[in-house]
Design a protein around this nucleic acid. Sequence first.
DNA 1: CTCACACCCTGAAGCTACTATAGAGTCAAG
DNA 2: CTTGACTCTATAGTAGCTTCAGGGTGTGAG
Lengths: 143, 143
Amino acid sequence: MKIGELGQIAQCTVETVRYYEKEGLLPQPERTSGNFRSYGPQHLERLRFIRNCRALDMTHGEIRTLLEVMDAPAAGCGRVNALLDEHIGHVDARIAELMQLKLQLGELRHQCKAEQPAAACGILQGLVSMESEARQERHTHLG
Amino acid sequence: MKIGELGQIAQCTVETVRYYEKEGLLPQPERTSGNFRSYGPQHLERLRFIRNCRALDMTHGEIRTLLEVMDAPAAGCGRVNALLDEHIGHVDARIAELMQLKLQLGELRHQCKAEQPAAACGILQGLVSMESEARQERHTHLG
DNA sequence: CTCACACCCTGAAGCTACTATAGAGTCAAG
DNA sequence: CTTGACTCTATAGTAGCTTCAGGGTGTGAG
């Protein structure tokens, strides 16, 4: 099948497919006489795998690790388990950060009840005078 | 004061300060005879404002909007209130996404209890066969 | 046969918010 | 007069794509 069909089935754009190829996540497929990429079912499976990992917000690095394990089916899957545990930790950490953020934002929002001249707006005043503690180091790749 | 001092007080690097200037968030300061940037208290206040907004995960675009309102103190602050509400919506949406993600990851994690050959690993199998529903459009800039 | 049109190709640039690096200049103290 | 801390500019790199420019391929209609 050609790249457009592959992308459609795997729910991503052709540009993304080509990008994964350039990144080495997806192997280079055969080409037709007209130089079009020609994919088989094994490419689709691998692309699905990658998209599923991405849907779980894994990085390309994490995905690469998983693919390496997959490509050595006789080796142990310990790295997979460890990677998933770590990734779940990332998600937990980010959720906690965002909950904290939400609290702060809610507080700030209450500083201004209704539209008024900007000079008197409690939100803007709050943003000027806030003391944001030094942001701790990130323990997650989630933005 | 010079850029190093400014950065230290506002808890950011000198590179970040110069970057904000290039982005137009921070006005260009006077220069000393030796071409060093020379900042006054109004620069510090504005930089603090920016850093506080960033600590709340606002984008430069959002911050630019807030700064525009601040620079027209007689105009209404309706846009500020709306922007904050929207931003809180972003945070809520991202939290919901991540909670869903965590559920999926937890389920996946249980597919493999202990290390075993990769070919038999339930996690890898799950990642191949998962049907990730087409990712809905992002309603948030939060990663 | 030729034309339009949908699809494909490559390579490079753009996006966000920085961070890092190279190579050079400024300035105060010893 | 030299050392060292600081500053300057310009450029490239980060992640994971998206968008664009400028072309080539293949198919159905007229």
